[in-house]
Amino acid sequence: MPTTPEALLLGATALHAGFQLTVTTLVYPRLADTPAADWRRVHERHGRTITPLVAVVYAAVLAACGWALADPGPAVVAAASACGLALGTTAARAAPLHGRLADRPDPRLLARLLAVDRVRAVAAVAAVPAALAAAVG
């Protein structure tokens, strides 16, 4: 049975949502609770360990969105838009905040990072039902 672009989009959005919810509910709260004395070491380890996973998940999302958008319906556009919001928020807000937090935990910047992360989580989760509608539609 051949894989459709919409089925791939559904799988990629589900993978992304699961990843993002794990980051939002488990990874970032633990990172935010890191004592200042341990911050640099823990933050560097976080970056080293999560970057390859981000690359794989985001590549899957981009590939799926690209394939599905070759012949899009409204549900594909909605799913891809939600994915775009999540990935764009990472590039425009989360990554720069991580850069500013590299040396020390600034409570204001950490609060911003957690808020930005919640936007990514909502967007990633919102993509799933849209992708499901595309896959069954």
Rank of each mutant, 00 (worst) to 15 (best):
T4P: 01
P5W: 02
E6Q: 11
E6H: 09
L8I: 00
L10W: 00
A12E: 01
A12M: 07
T13C: 06
H16G: 07
A17S: 09
G18V: 13
Q20R: 11
L21V: 11
L21I: 10
T25C: 15
L26Q: 12
P29C: 08
R30W: 14
L31E: 01
D33S: 10
T34Y: 09
T34E: 12
P35V: 15
A37D: 14
D38A: 15
W39A: 02
R41Y: 09
H43N: 11
R45D: 15
H46M: 13
H46P: 13
I50C: 14
T51H: 10
T51R: 14
P52S: 07
V57L: 07
V61P: 04
V61I: 10
L62N: 07
L62T: 15
A64K: 01
W67I: 10
P74E: 15
A75F: 00
A78N: 04
A78W: 05
A79S: 11
S81M: 07
C83R: 04
L85K: 01
L85G: 05
L85E: 01
A86W: 05
L87G: 07
A92Q: 02
A92C: 09
R93S: 09
A95C: 06
L97I: 00
H98M: 12
R100Y: 09
L101M: 12
D103S: 12
P105E: 05
P105Q: 08
D106R: 02
R108E: 15
L109S: 07
A111G: 13
L113E: 03
L114A: 13
L114N: 07
V116M: 05
R118L: 12
V119M: 08
A127R: 00
A127F: 03
A127I: 01
V128D: 00
P129Y: 02
A131Q: 03
A131T: 07
L132I: 00
A134R: 02
V136T: 12
